[in-house]
């Protein structure tokens, strides 16, 4: 099996970071903090690469006349304008805030509203696609929580608030903890595979 230099570096850095987390040795902890700071800086540089990738994809889409070219043009113009305004005036200037409050927020708010509709439709569709006992329990629980959380036209159903808090604190909490334990074990397994060089998301 090939064992490139990049793998050795990744394993070494992973071991130092993990050891610095568990062992109370000042040198290890200083190294760990320094490595995490380097990773943060690299992630910031990667952001610039990501923006270049986004720009290139939409530029290609626009110039090749593919479907959705108009949307790509809007994205490129918005990206350039925002970069220009925020770069020139700074992120806290009134113009920069205007873009955020009058473009970004309404667009994301609209998508959130769309999401609410999609989830209602998905709930109904779930009963058609997977009409199992679990799906029925899922829908009933979601409805009880919704009815007890939102205003019900001034009507007060006795016991609904108590039922909601019981669901949230007992079965939902137990289920969530079970899922989190499984996820935690999965995270340890995935992390260890990367640490021993079995999984190499970096190819080197």
């Amino acid at each position: 099996m090939k064992f490139p230099f990049s793998v050795a570096v990744a394993i070494g850095i992973g071991l130092i970071t993990l050891a610095g987390y568990f062992l109370n040795i000042p040198v290890l902890q200083t190294l760990r903090m320094a490595l995490i700071e380097w990773a943060t800086t690299l992630a910031a540089v990667a952001l610039l690469v990501g923006i270049a990738n986004l720009f290139t994809i939409h530029w290609n889409k626009l110039t090749s006349g593919k479907v959705g070219g108009l949307y790509s043009a809007i994205l490129i113009v918005s990206l350039v304008l925002t970069l220009g305004v925020v770069g020139w005036f700074g992120p806290t200037h009134t113009y920069s805030k205007w873009i955020f409050n009058n473009v970004q927020l309404p667009v994301e708010g609209s998508l959130l509203a769309l999401l609410a509709v999609i989830l209602v439709v998905a709930g109904v569709r779930l009963l058609r696609l997977r009409s199992s006992m679990l799906s029925i329990i899922f829908i009933i629980t979601a409805m009880v929580i919704l009815l007890a959380t939102g205003p019900l036209f001034g009507i007060s159903v006795p016991g609904l608030t108590e039922l909601r808090s019981w669901i949230a604190q007992v079965p939902a909490m137990a289920g969530a903890r079970g899922l989190l334990l499984g996820i935690g074990l999965g995270i340890v397994a995935a992390g260890l595979r990367v640490l021993i060089g079995s999984d190499r998301p970096y190819r080197g």
Partner: peptide, 11 residues
């Protein structure tokens, strides 16, 4: 996430 985009390209 941009780092994931780079890793996906690498993969």
């Amino acid at each position: 996430e941009s780092t994931l985009a780079i890793l996906s390209q690498d993969t």
